[in-house]
Amino acid sequence: MSHLHIPDGVLPVWLWLTGLLFMILLLALALRRIRKADLRKKLPLLAFAAAMMLVSMSLEIVPLAYHMNLSVLTGILLGPAMGFVAAFLVNFMLALVGHGGLTVVGLNTLIIGFEACSGYWLFRVCKRLFKPALAGGLSVVLTLFLSTSLVIGLAALSRLDPLKVSEFANRDRSQEKGLLSFHGSHHHEDQHEEEAGKAIVSLATFAKGAYILGSIGWILEALLVGFILRFLVQVKPDMIST
């Protein structure tokens, strides 16, 4: 649940276009930052990291049939800039197999890129207090909680039309009935209040499902990343340069 497996045509155009624009901006910044440290030298490592993420996504953990994406670990090992570029490479490849739409690549890169960046920074903080394995596990749980919240936020946003939001903002504040009650005109307020209520309920159900099912995944991925970090500390500690 840490990224949107949503194909093209489902999300509103303004939302995925905004996602693409932000992705391009952040990707340019990330590439500029890596370029300072010789991008050509980093290219094979970047490709290996992205391929590793793809391979980990293809592994199932029996008996729960859960699949990971190792974005937090990638952030910890490569840093935020390279982690973000790796997130783009993975999402582009996945979109080409119909695993999430091409138009959703922007939003997905922002979510997975956020996981890589947040994982890197949280790990840096946690490592001061705990051993790397525990610090990595904690970073995974916190990051995946945040990214799941981001996904739920996007699901909520996908119901908003920015034009109508600005209309809504211009209205008398006393008419405000709730976040989703802007759909429609003044004449049908009762009907729209009812519809908004239903939308909020279904979104709440979606959020509940995402948090409950997601939390199982967060714990599994945290354990896995913890075990991997413990292995790396024993075998090749210089890989964890964070």
Partner: peptide, 29 residues
């Protein structure tokens, strides 16, 4: 039925793969 063992073993495999990738990336460059 042994989730913990499965996780440990998969982590071992992915860890080895990461080390392999890290070393190979320098050779590839």
């Amino acid at each position: 039925f042994r989730l913990s063992t499965n996780l440990r073993n998969i982590a071992l495999g992915l860890g080895r793969l990461l080390v392999f990738s890290f070393e190979r990336s320098q050779r590839l460059y």
